[in-house]
Simulated scan of single mutants.
Amino acid sequence: MKMWAVFAIIVVVFVTLIIFQFVPNENFHTYLDKSVPFIGGDIPRLEGIDGNGIKIAVIDTGVDFNHPDLFGFGPDGKVIGGYNFIKEGEPPLDTNGHGTQVAGVIAADGNLKGVAPKAKILAYKVSENGESVSSDLIVKAIDKSIEDGADIINISLGVNKTNANIDIAVNRALEKGIIVITAAGNDGPTPQTIGSPGKNSGSITVGATYNNLTSSLIATLEVNEKPYTVIPMAGSSKLDKPIVGKIVFGGYGKEEELKNINATNTILLVERGSNIKGELLYFSIKEKNAANAGAKALIVYNNEPGIFLGELI
């Protein structure tokens, strides 16, 4: 699977998780500055993967392309195309808000930044009020997405039963190599509550979840007033105040290497892996050795291109 495809999955899975927490008469706010890092959505940007060149079809209530974070309709805008199946001949402008929120989480690129801010949106309006939608229009929108060259199709809506025509349309998209992300709906968690298109085995179907955790997958390392972005290991706790100390190189973080340096109250910098071919020097071993040497913190830098994630013991 191409790297952009993996990133696209992160994008649309995240969108579906957020959208299906909707409850009438309650106000919900999407805090992209917190929620995007929580799911690791900004990690691909460290590799320069920001959605550039990707077209994502949003089958929903349309998109408000006058919004400053989603501005423009047409080849030079954020919303490069689409279709209004409710009022044919008119642009697919959102008057409900549901589709705009979906598109914003995906690709907002203004004051707010979506998961893939450089991606382009294809907006297909199949519902006016976000409450009712025709299965025939979902099918037409899927086929139009295929025709318009979408790389990914996001469908944060559906019907509460199996619909063969919708499932067949999803299969047509899958056969073209298009990633299809669907929502599990609002009727769970009891069995037999997922309808089409979420019931299609070829799509990636996502259910809602409640997040009561605090997390930060991105941290800042500042050296001589110059900031660098680093990725904390899984299990790291949020700091009340910054760790300040001298950075000392500790080789590969082996016990015998650290005996030859004064690592007490330092920030220890060690290389990933080992200098001995075939030796498995786990992050947990490096962490233990650094702690035993009296270091305040441990930074492991990569010995090959790409991003890696470690885990604390």
Rank of each mutant, 00 (worst) to 15 (best):
L122N: 12
I106S: 11
T100H: 06
N111G: 10
T100N: 06
A116S: 08
E128F: 03
Y124N: 03
H98I: 07
G110C: 00
L122W: 10
N111W: 01
N129C: 07
I106K: 00
G104M: 02
Q101R: 12
A123I: 11
K118V: 03
A123W: 04
A108T: 00
V126L: 05
G110T: 13
V102C: 15
V115C: 14
K113V: 10
S127P: 00
G104Y: 14
A107S: 15
Y124V: 04
K120F: 12
V115Y: 12
N111P: 00
G99E: 04
N129A: 09
L122Q: 14
Q101P: 00
S127H: 14
Q101K: 14
P117M: 01
P117S: 02
G110M: 09
A107N: 09
G104V: 08
P117E: 13
V102H: 03
P117I: 01
A107L: 03
T100C: 07
E128P: 05
S127G: 14
A123M: 07
K120Y: 13
L122A: 11
V102L: 11
A103K: 02
A108Q: 00
P117G: 09
L112M: 12
I106T: 09
K125I: 09
L112A: 07
L122S: 12
L122T: 10
Q101L: 13
K125S: 10
A108L: 09
N129P: 12
Q101Y: 12
G110K: 08
P117V: 13
V105G: 11
T100Y: 15
I121C: 14
A119P: 07
I106Q: 00
K120L: 15
N111L: 00
I106D: 08
G99M: 14
A107H: 01
A123R: 13
V102T: 09
A119I: 14
Q101A: 15
G114K: 03
I121Y: 08
G110E: 03
D109F: 14
V126Q: 08
Y124D: 00
A119R: 08
D109S: 09
L112T: 02
T100S: 11
N129E: 07
N129L: 11
G99T: 15
A116G: 10
S127M: 04
A108C: 03
L122M: 13
S127Q: 07
A116K: 04
D109R: 05
Y124I: 05
V126K: 04
G114F: 01
K118L: 09
H98R: 12
A108H: 02
L112V: 02
A123V: 06
K125F: 13
V115P: 03
V126P: 01
A123D: 01
H98Y: 15
G104W: 10
N111C: 01
